[in-house]
Amino acid sequence: MRVTLAMKPAERSFIPIEAEAIVPKNFLAGTDISVWRGNRELRLDEVFSVSVEGDADRPEDVEVVLSGDETFRLKRVGEYMDGGKIVVLGGIGMHCGNFMSGGTIEIHGNADGWLGREMAGGTILCRGDAADYCASGYRGGRKGMTGGTVEVFGRAGDFLAESLAGGTVIVHGGAGDMAGAEMHGGTLIVHGDCSRPAANMKAGSCYVYGTAHGMLPTFKKIGAVQHDGRTLIQFTGDIANRGKGNLFVKDYRYLD
């Protein structure tokens, strides 16, 4: 079953749309679904041109395709998603894939903040860049992503994979400040540069295939190791917080 949702142009296009109802399982009962623009509840067909091909008996057999020039205004798409697939033919707004536990979300543009926030399973593929707090917990929380995979083919912003507890996060470009801060499980891989990675980590593994700028002095250098055909420098730490995590970097620079 394929559900295609093409966004209609809107006069007040600066207002984001709360679209947590857009998850594959909700379309098993039809398209009588609502979204919110500000304080107005809108039918799906007031915001999108809707077309449906085929049918399905389970979420795993439902694919939702979002298109249009303003998909970046859609927030919370795929929240609590547990199966099926969502394809975004453009950018997407904040909190895409919140608490996701299964299925696949593929974004062909950029993703706004908190992509894959506190997800527990499934796969998110972002073909563009991801903004701050990708694959992280929420402000004040102690547990971020616990399972699944997030893969970003561009860059990621600050606080990538903050409080990561499980699963795998891969960024093919660089990342901003504090990647992997407060990690206590899982695996984070950054192919480019980042700054102050894995600060205050308790457990888990963080790999930086570029340069770790502002390297914290509370990591203990072990020596060179081979990983995935690369020679990396292994550190254990953060010794400011039990020192049980592992940080691997291609190169590093301490703060001046």
Rank of each mutant, 00 (worst) to 15 (best):
G91V: 01
Q234H: 10
V150C: 10
Y133G: 00
R155W: 00
T4S: 12
S13N: 12
G229I: 04
E46D: 14
A130W: 08
M215L: 13
E151L: 06
W36P: 00
L255F: 02
V171M: 12
H172T: 05
A135H: 07
L232Q: 10
R43V: 02
L164A: 09
C126V: 14
S163G: 02
V47N: 04
H213S: 00
V171F: 10
G223A: 03
Y209E: 10
S205N: 11
V208C: 09
T31D: 07
E46T: 06
G166W: 05
Y254N: 12
I107V: 12
V23D: 02
R2N: 15
Y80N: 14
L42A: 03
F153L: 13
I170G: 06
H108I: 01
I222K: 14
Y252H: 09
M178G: 05
D61M: 04
D158V: 04
G68H: 13
C126G: 09
T104K: 13
F235R: 10
T4H: 12
L66S: 04
F235Y: 15
G237N: 11
L125S: 05
T231Q: 14
Y138G: 14
M201L: 08
D193E: 04
H172D: 14
A135W: 00
P9D: 15
G204E: 09
G116N: 05
V77E: 12
V150L: 13
G148K: 00
Y207E: 03
S51N: 07
R139M: 05
A111T: 08
G167M: 03
G166P: 07
G102T: 05
E162P: 03
G192H: 11
L42E: 05
M119R: 03
R155V: 00
D69A: 09
D69G: 04
A29E: 13
E18T: 06
G243A: 12
G245R: 03
T231K: 08
E63T: 15
W114G: 01
